[in-house]
Design a protein around this nucleic acid. Structure first.
Length: 525
DNA sequence: CGGTTTTGACCGGCGC
DNA sequence: GCGCCGGTCAAAACCG
């Protein structure tokens, strides 16, 4: 909303006689220097300019102060007459200026409040989404845990019962939750012989952005079968204090059907990552082979098509294209599911994009009841002064979630991103919350170590440990914060992966991006 | 020599 | 039916 007045200023400053008024209206001078007059901003300015015109028109009803509008084109004879010909005294001009200023001030305040309102709505929506996702995961974990308890010996039952009982408590502590996750993770490892190897492989695989979908599908499946046995999972904490009542629950077959339809739709979803990079392609840990390049309409930069070559027949594709407006931004769009386990490097990247996909998943659930997804559920520009991290769009045949990692670092200092800070951004806190317990979630530890290895003391360290010790949402969000706050995220990620993973997993991980390695010159490592 | 990139051809969907 | 467009194929070129 700030560019509104900024634009007013720039417009009126080009005129004679109104310049002083304009300067007084420049409430947002701080933003001026940071704004780029790219196409997107031009659109915003144009949008607000309409309001500016009406604003000035309203002022014209009281006084003949119409000069600002005419500045858009040329100074007309009528304008000159209105300024010089009517003999308006300086005091009247001053009053007029004051009125205009007050009007602009009120409008700016109104815009600001509206933006704040939208932001709060978004926050509420994200919180509900996070709670819903956690609910899904918790139901799955608790049910499996209960099954194990029923099948285990009494000794094991005595060990597990406290954990189970804790899950019944209202407002289960995160520490307890993570204990459960740990127990369940161990249980899953023990159950490897029970579950098919393919399923396990799927659990460990997934292209960036779709692993969470796979996981959620299985959780949904588990939840479905369990709901057939019992309507109310005992392990699910009561909504009060933990879950939102608005969160969709698959307690009926209708809900399950709808949810599975949603899953089918989401399976086709794409995850787009926007990151500033000089490289021709960001390194995400997978091996890719370029199979085509086309000039897409509306973008002078060619679009490159890659397919995953880490395993024969892997259906995962990705498209890489530079942003037309800002060619320093590289847009990578992933599609499909890996049919092979991912190396840690790829999973670290997946933890980022899966967060976006999970947001797509959770955020689309309510509207999915109608089979329609709202386009741009998170509109761009929703958060004044802060970057847009996640954008959902269903305008395409398949829903697309965009994870934006392109915001400048000085726009949101890292110290403001500390989880304990009151300035903790709500939009970031909505990120990968329900990666908890997901296999890729554990890779956050790697990512946190990567980031800390880059010498940035402000970045969260030992994320996984902290998450295991009772701050799952906060520190997972800190991971995303660290990612998004780092303008050179790709470089940091690649360097860290190379330094840490490369030693022990040199064979199948690290900077194994053939395309990137070939384009070493433009890789920002 | 094997894997990858390049690049024109080809295909299918979609709108007019 | 035709053209446009996005996506893919595949042969040739390229590279280590």
């Amino acid at each position: 909303m700030e560019p509104v007045d900024h634009h007013i200023v720039s417009l009126v400053q080009s005129s004679d006689g109104i310049k002083r008024v304009v300067n007084e209206m420049d409430f947002f001078a701080d933003d001026r220097s940071s704004k780029q007059h790219d196409k997107a901003d031009d659109d915003v300015h144009h949008h607000h300019h309409v309001k500016t015109e009406s604003e000035h028109h309203g002022a014209d009803q009281d006084d003949d102060v119409n000069t600002g509008l005419n500045l858009l084109t040329t100074n007309t004879a009528s304008e000159k007459s209105s300024v010089a010909g009517d003999g308006i005294t300086s005091s009247q001009n001053l009053k007029e200026k004051q009125r205009v200023n007050q009007l602009a001030d009120v409008r700016a305040e109104l815009d600001r409040i509206n933006a704040e309102n939208q932001r709060l709505k978004l926050t509420l929506n994200q919180v509900n989404s996070n709670y819903y996702a956690l609910q899904m995961h918790l139901v799955s974990l608790t049910q499996r845990h209960r099954n194990r308890i029923a099948e285990s010996s009494e000794a094991n039952t005595q060990m597990n019962r406290p954990i189970e009982e804790k899950t019944h408590g209202e407002g289960m502590a995160a520490r307890q939750f993570m204990d459960l996750v740990q127990t369940e993770t161990k249980a899953e490892n023990d159950e490897l012989s029970e579950s098919s190897s393919e399923d396990r492989c799927q659990e460990l695989s997934g292209s960036p952005g779709n692993t969470i979908v796979e996981s959620m599908e299985r959780r949904l499946k588990n939840n479905t079968s369990r709901n057939q046995r019992e309507d109310t999972p005992e392990g699910l904490p009561h909504p009060a204090g933990w879950l939102s009542n608005k969160g969709p629950k698959f307690n009926t077959s209708k809900d399950n059907e709808q949810a599975q339809q949603t899953m089918a739709m989401i399976r086709k979803a794409r995850v787009s990552v926007r990151a500033r990079s000089e490289a021709s392609m960001i390194s995400d840990g997978c091996q890719w082979r370029k199979y085509g390049q086309k000039m897409a309409k509306g973008n002078p930069c060619p679009r490159a098509y890659y397919r995953c070559t880490m395993a024969t027949g892997c259906p995962v594709r990705k498209q890489v294209q530079r942003c037309a407006e800002d060619r320093t931004i590289l847009v990578t769009t992933y599609e499909g599911n890996h049919n092979h386990p991912l190396p840690p490097a790829a999973m670290a990247m997946a933890s980022t994009t899966s967060a976006a996909a999970s947001t797509l998943l959770s955020g689309s659930m309510p509207s999915a009841d109608h089979g329609i997804m709202n386009s741009n559920i998170v509109p761009k520009g929703m958060l004044p002064g802060s970057p847009n991290l996640i954008t959902l769009s269903a305008s395409a045949p398949f829903p697309t979630v965009t994870l934006d990692l392109t915001h400048p670092p000085n726009q949101r200092p890292l110290h403001q991103l500390h989880p304990l800070s009151p300035n903790w951004p709500h939009n970031i806190s909505s990120l990968p919350a329900h990666l908890l317990g997901h296999p890729i979630y554990n890779q956050s530890k790697l990512l946190g170590t990567y980031l800390s290895s880059q010498g940035n003391n402000e970045l969260p360290v030992h994320l996984s440990q902290n998450q295991m010790q009772g701050h799952p949402m906060v520190d997972t969000a800190a991971t995303a914060a660290a990612i998004t706050a780092d303008p050179n995220f790709t470089a940091a990620l690649v360097a860290a992966i190379t330094s840490i993973i490369g030693n022990s997993h040199r064979d199948n991980s690290g900077n194994n991006n053939s395309t990137t390695s070939r384009n070493t010159g433009d890789n920002n490592t």
